[in-house]
């Protein structure tokens, strides 16, 4: 099977280049990652991240024939040849298919992706009704592979400021959590014009997500919550003025 793979090793290469491989697959090689490991057997200088090989760890996300995805859950039979593999766009390349995810995780950390609850810790777990728990479905499954954020033109344009689909969906994951108490703080955190509102529902994120999640919908829900919050503030401000007048 024929492959064309982006190669760059800063130790020896001045510029990145595409290298062609023609690799003989064996019975049982079904996923793109299987083929990449065959190539790595022939040429150990090809660097890529991988770990769980079943779409759980999010390590082997890359640009596959122009579309971001995980090598381990991409079927070889679905790919046109030569299979063109590049690192995920929009992040600095460390080497070959490995990108520097620092900025991605900085944005992720910036939304405080953890439960904020000021009540004293109870003896047992903080409980939740099945209905409240169901509100987290489609949000908590994110594996932080970065496929969505690095396919997002808004992120390419404003990588320093726009939180990106992965980070914003995790922001909403905690806004939607009945046990969380930091709704106002979380909404305020996304107030700066470039952090949330650079999303224009381009929906590349939805198209590429290997876990079939919908960051665009989550972002729309944050915008709804922002609107509600603004309306409440306005009402409160109005009441305040009326009281003053009285």
């Amino acid at each position: 099977m024929k492959f064309s793979i982006y190669r760059f090793n800063p130790d020896v290469d001045k510029k990145p280049y595409m290298q062609d491989y023609d690799v003989v697959l064996e019975d049982g090689d079904q996923m793109l990652l299987d083929a990449l490991l065959r190539i790595k057997d022939l040429d150990d200088s090809l660097s890529l991240r991988k770990s769980c090989r079943e779409g759980v760890c999010g390590s082997d996300s890359m640009n596959i024939n122009g579309k971001n995805g995980l090598a381990c859950v991409t079927k070889l039979s679905d790919l046109d040849e030569p299979v063109v593999l590049r690192p995920m766009p929009g992040l600095p390349v460390i080497r070959d298919l490995v990108v520097d995810m620092t900025q991605f995780f900085e944005h992720y950390n910036s939304v405080k992706p953890y439960l904020i609850n000021h009540d004293a810790p109870p003896e047992t777990e903080r409980l939740q009704s099945p209905e409240d728990r169901a509100k987290l479905d489609g949000l908590y499954e994110c594996i932080l592979c970065g496929a969505c954020t690095t396919s997002c033109p808004s992120f390419w344009w404003n990588p320093e400021t726009f939180v990106g689909p992965a980070g914003l969906m995790q922001a909403y994951r905690f806004m939607a959590d009945s046990r969380d108490q930091a709704m106002d703080e979380r909404l305020e955190n996304l107030e700066a014009p470039d952090r949330l509102y650079r999303c224009h529902n381009i929906m590349n994120c939805v198209d590429v997500c290997p876990k079939k999640l919908n960051p665009s919908l989550a972002i729309a829900k944050i915008k709804d919550l922002k609107f509600e919050q603004a309306r409440e503030h306005k009402c409160n401000a109005k009441k305040h003025i009326e009281i003053k007048v009285l």
């Binding site: 800063p10 130790d11 150990d44 200088s45 660097s47 991240r49 080497r95 490995v98």
Partner: peptide, 13 residues
């Protein structure tokens, strides 16, 4: 035998 002697993200090593 490892062919890759690079210091950068050397997964072979």
């Amino acid at each position: 035998m490892i062919q890759d002697k690079s210091q950068v993200f050397n997964t072979a090593r």
